[in-house]
């Protein structure tokens, strides 16, 4: 496409972001500031993730974009089109075929392999923000490993609801050091962060922060001894593919109380149906 550099960003910006990414990979879970650029889309639509993807994308890479697990939702479709136009890269919906997967709110059900890169879109990168509004203070708390307040939040959950009611953006400790917000993925996906063979990058466009979990890194979800971490479970199986072990969305089908549970990962669901059929 005329008038644009490959993948929209200029090469200097890409270098700057890659340097920040190298630092993020070197210090797992640490939030690295970067000079975020204006992108041709509003904040909150994935500007952080798009900048990271643009910086790491090569001409031969195959890109997959998902939003809430689905390849066919607005956010996923428009970002996929964006990179088709400005980078001319090949795109796919198959998790196994993709080199780079940009995601919002999910990790694919199909296990990732070594060599793949998962790019997360992050709204609020600071896990301590809800309890400490000052950025200066939260940075100091990270530097000094003052993470007692994270458990205040979990304590409050149990006191109020009888169990840890945080179901998404569930805080994790990366490599025994930094407490990190895994972006608003359901806590169902938290165990997939631990020891994953793929490289996972997180970009927050509004806050201009990026962080990373290198392959095969230890990631623990915070909990109490007498209230251990648990993932969501459903009594149903997927109405389409019959899966009893994937993350399910509840879909309302009419105004008479009709509903069905289906996999949120559309590629996984379709692949399973193809195999069964």
């Amino acid at each position: 496409m005329n008038g644009y550099n490959f993948a929209y960003l200029d090469e200097q910006t890409k270098r700057m972001i890659r340097r920040a990414l190298l630092k993020a990979v070197a210090i797992p879970g640490y939030q690295v500031p970067f000079g975020g650029r204006e992108m041709p889309m509003p904040y909150g639509w994935g500007t952080g993730g798009v900048q990271l993807t643009a910086s790491i994308l090569g001409a031969d890479d195959i890109l997959k974009v998902i939003d809430q697990g689905a390849d066919d939702t607005t956010n996923a479709v428009s970002i996929r089109h964006f990179f088709q136009r400005v980078a001319g890269v090949e795109t796919t919906t198959a998790t196994t075929a993709a080199d780079v997967i940009q995601t919002r709110h999910r990790i694919p059900e199909t296990p990732l392999r070594s060599g793949q890169i998962l790019v997360f879109q992050v709204p609020i990168p600071e896990p301590l923000r809800f309890i400490e509004p000052s950025e200066q203070e939260t940075r100091l708390m990270h530097a000094l490993e003052e993470y007692g307040v994270m458990h205040v939040k979990l304590y409050e959950d149990i006191a109020r609801y009888g169990h840890i009611a945080t179901t998404y953006a569930y805080p994790v400790k990366v490599d025994g050091r930094y407490v990190m917000d895994p972006s608003p993925i359901p806590k169902f996906d938290n165990p997939k962060l631990d020891g994953n063979p793929a490289l996972m990058l997180f970009g927050a466009g509004r806050e201009k922060r990026l962080y990373a979990i290198p392959p095969y890194t230890r990631v623990e979800s915070l909990d109490f001894e007498d209230h251990p971490f648990e993932i969501q479970r459903w009594e149903h199986s997927c109405a389409l593919c019959g899966s009893d072990h994937s993350y399910l969305d509840e879909v309302i089908t009419d105004d008479k109380g009709g509903r069905m549970f289906v996999c949120s990962d559309t590629d996984y669901c379709q692949t399973r149906r193809g195999e069964v059929a």
Partner: peptide, 16 residues
Amino acid sequence: GANIGERLMAQGQRHY
């Protein structure tokens, strides 16, 4: 309760 417990959690107590 969370207010009273905060310093203890900062010390590393993890038993609700």
